[in-house]
Simulated scan of single mutants.
Amino acid sequence: MTTVLFDMDGVILEGPRTDPQVYADAADAALADLGADPTPDQRRDVRTHEYERIKPHCRDLGIDPEQFWELKEAYASEGTHDRLRSGERGTYDDIDAIRDLGDRTTIGLVTNNRHETAAFVADYVGFDFDVVRGRDPTFEGYERRKPDPYYIDDALDALGVTDGIYVGDSPTDVTAGRAAGLETAFLRRPHNRDRERLRNATHELESLADVVSLVVSK
Rank of each mutant, 00 (worst) to 15 (best):
V110N: 09
H191R: 04
R188A: 07
V167A: 01
D19Q: 04
D33K: 10
A26V: 07
N200P: 06
A97Y: 06
L214G: 14
H191L: 02
V216P: 03
V211Q: 02
G134L: 02
E78Q: 13
E88G: 07
R99D: 15
R99W: 01
V121G: 01
L156K: 09
V216G: 07
D64C: 08
V46P: 02
D82T: 05
Y51L: 08
P38T: 09
H49G: 06
R44P: 11
V110S: 06
G35I: 12
A118P: 09
I95R: 13
S207R: 14
G108R: 08
P147Q: 00
G181P: 08
A24N: 00
R199H: 12
D173W: 12
P65F: 02
H49F: 15
A29D: 03
A26L: 06
F129L: 13
T172H: 11
A179T: 09
N200K: 08
T162W: 07
V174M: 14
P56L: 03
D64H: 06
D153F: 09
A176V: 10
R144E: 14
E206Q: 15
T91F: 14
I12S: 00
V161T: 08
P137T: 10
K146S: 08
T184S: 09
R85P: 01
L159E: 04
L214E: 02
A155C: 14
F120Y: 15
V174G: 00
K146V: 12
R178L: 08
R17M: 10
P40D: 05
A201P: 11
V167F: 10
W69D: 05
R144G: 06
T106W: 02
T175G: 01
T111R: 03
P65Y: 07
R85E: 10
H81T: 08
Y151H: 13
G62P: 01
A201D: 11
Q21A: 15
G141N: 03
V110M: 08
V215P: 02
W69A: 01
D25K: 03
E52D: 14
L34A: 11
D173N: 09
I152P: 07
Y124N: 07
Q42D: 10
P65Q: 12
D100M: 11
D169H: 02
R47F: 01
G15P: 10
R59K: 15
D94K: 14
A24P: 00
V11M: 07
E52P: 05
V174L: 13
L71N: 04
G108I: 12
I98H: 01
D157H: 06
E14S: 02
A180M: 02
V11T: 12
T18Y: 02
G108C: 05
I152C: 03
E140A: 14
G160L: 10
T3Y: 00
V125I: 15
